[in-house]
Amino acid sequence: MRRILSSMVLCLLMVPVTAAAQESTSVAAAKTEAEASADDTANQPPNLGGTWAQQVVTTAVSEVPIVGEVVTRTISLQKVDISQTGEKLEMQTEVCAIKVHSSVDVVETHIPKRFVAAMGVVKRPARLVEKDGAYHLHVPRKFEVLGVRLRAPNSENLPTEADDPRVFDQDGDGHPGMTVRVSGLIDGSLYIIHRGWDRLRGKLSGLDHIEGAVQWNLEQVVVDSTSIFLGDPPESRAHPDSKKNHFEMRRVTNGTDCQTIVKRRARLF
């Protein structure tokens, strides 16, 4: 009987010990899973998916006969929709408005709405890169060709005449290429073709703001104009001060349109 009772006591004593051991093991396992989940979350890049307003500022320097050095600042206001998979991004960019400011005020350059609309929506890849405890946005170089169809967009020589079959009326206003208007000392229109590229490198500050530098290059040919005084623009180069070639992005409500971004530009940037 004693042996039976002893065995029962041992069994009764072993039950809570075993349960406690199992509970301890379960808690430890749960902690391990929670820690692993926290580590996975910590290792995930920030989520940039959604709609952003972007302002790109490029500054060019050119030498104009008689006038001398001319500095031209171009501000492009854009809407960017971002989709994301891990560190890989796809950016769909739509230009909302373009403003051009020159250090020479005798002639002003105007970019018509037709020009902007004809640029359409451009898709380009991008990626997030972690460096020194911060995330950086890398948008690789992408060429953009306007008013002309080229078999080799990155390297083919641009045509110089309006009747070249590669030149077409992209903005649909009845004139070859893309139309730019000028006013001031000379009033008129230039019909241009355009090839350019840019590359963006920025740093995230929080989840709603990115800013950084822009590298770029641009070629333009005037294939026709309304005045003999409106010929090819002088050769230009990016301003040597990198701070004058920059971009900034701010997150806005998903689905925000270009019109709203243009209206809110002063508050956004």
Results as ranks from 00 to 15, higher is better:
residue 1 M to G: 15
residue 13 L to E: 01
residue 14 M to K: 01
residue 17 V to G: 02
residue 17 V to M: 10
residue 18 T to K: 04
residue 21 A to M: 12
residue 23 E to A: 14
residue 28 A to W: 13
residue 29 A to V: 12
residue 31 K to Y: 11
residue 31 K to E: 13
residue 33 E to H: 10
residue 35 E to P: 00
residue 35 E to L: 14
residue 37 S to A: 15
residue 40 D to G: 06
residue 45 P to Q: 07
residue 46 P to L: 01
residue 47 N to E: 04
residue 51 T to E: 05
residue 52 W to N: 01
residue 53 A to M: 00
residue 56 V to N: 13
residue 56 V to S: 15
residue 58 T to D: 06
residue 59 T to K: 10
residue 60 A to N: 11
residue 61 V to H: 02
residue 61 V to W: 00
residue 63 E to R: 08
residue 64 V to Y: 04
residue 65 P to L: 00
residue 66 I to H: 10
residue 69 E to I: 15
residue 70 V to Q: 09
residue 73 R to C: 13
residue 77 L to I: 13
residue 77 L to A: 06
residue 77 L to K: 12
residue 78 Q to P: 09
residue 79 K to P: 00
residue 80 V to Q: 04
residue 86 G to W: 02
residue 86 G to P: 07
residue 89 L to G: 06
residue 94 E to L: 12
residue 95 V to P: 00
residue 100 V to H: 08
residue 104 V to K: 11
residue 105 D to S: 15
residue 105 D to G: 13
residue 106 V to K: 14
residue 109 T to K: 10
residue 110 H to T: 13
residue 110 H to M: 12
residue 113 K to L: 09
residue 117 A to E: 13
residue 119 M to W: 03
residue 120 G to A: 07
residue 120 G to V: 04
residue 122 V to I: 15
residue 124 R to K: 12
residue 125 P to A: 01
residue 128 L to Y: 06
residue 129 V to N: 07
residue 135 Y to A: 03
residue 138 H to P: 09
residue 142 K to I: 01
residue 146 L to D: 07
residue 146 L to C: 04
residue 146 L to Q: 10
residue 147 G to C: 05
residue 148 V to Q: 09
residue 149 R to S: 15
residue 154 N to G: 06
residue 154 N to D: 13
residue 159 P to M: 00
residue 161 E to T: 15
residue 167 V to L: 07
residue 167 V to F: 07
residue 169 D to G: 10
residue 170 Q to P: 14
residue 175 H to V: 01
residue 176 P to A: 10
residue 177 G to F: 07
residue 177 G to K: 09
residue 180 V to F: 02
residue 181 R to C: 08
residue 181 R to A: 14
residue 182 V to A: 07
residue 183 S to M: 03
residue 183 S to E: 11
residue 184 G to W: 03
residue 185 L to M: 12
residue 187 D to Y: 10
residue 187 D to K: 10
residue 191 Y to L: 02
residue 191 Y to H: 15
residue 193 I to K: 03
residue 195 R to F: 03
residue 196 G to W: 02
residue 196 G to L: 02
residue 196 G to A: 10
residue 197 W to I: 00
residue 197 W to E: 03
residue 198 D to F: 05
residue 199 R to K: 14
residue 200 L to A: 06
residue 203 K to N: 02
residue 203 K to E: 12
residue 207 L to H: 15
residue 208 D to S: 11
residue 208 D to F: 01
residue 215 Q to Y: 08
residue 217 N to W: 14
residue 218 L to H: 08
residue 218 L to K: 09
residue 219 E to M: 04
residue 220 Q to F: 02
residue 222 V to S: 06
residue 223 V to Y: 08
residue 223 V to K: 08
residue 223 V to I: 08
residue 224 D to A: 14
residue 229 F to N: 13
residue 230 L to K: 05
residue 230 L to C: 02
residue 231 G to R: 09
residue 233 P to L: 14
residue 234 P to Y: 00
residue 235 E to F: 07
residue 236 S to N: 09
residue 236 S to Y: 05
residue 238 A to D: 03
residue 241 D to F: 06
residue 246 H to V: 15
residue 247 F to R: 04
residue 247 F to V: 01
residue 249 M to C: 04
residue 251 R to T: 03
residue 252 V to G: 01
residue 253 T to R: 11
residue 256 T to H: 07
residue 259 Q to Y: 01
residue 262 V to D: 01
residue 262 V to M: 04
residue 264 R to W: 07
residue 264 R to H: 11
residue 265 R to F: 15
residue 266 A to D: 13
residue 268 L to C: 00
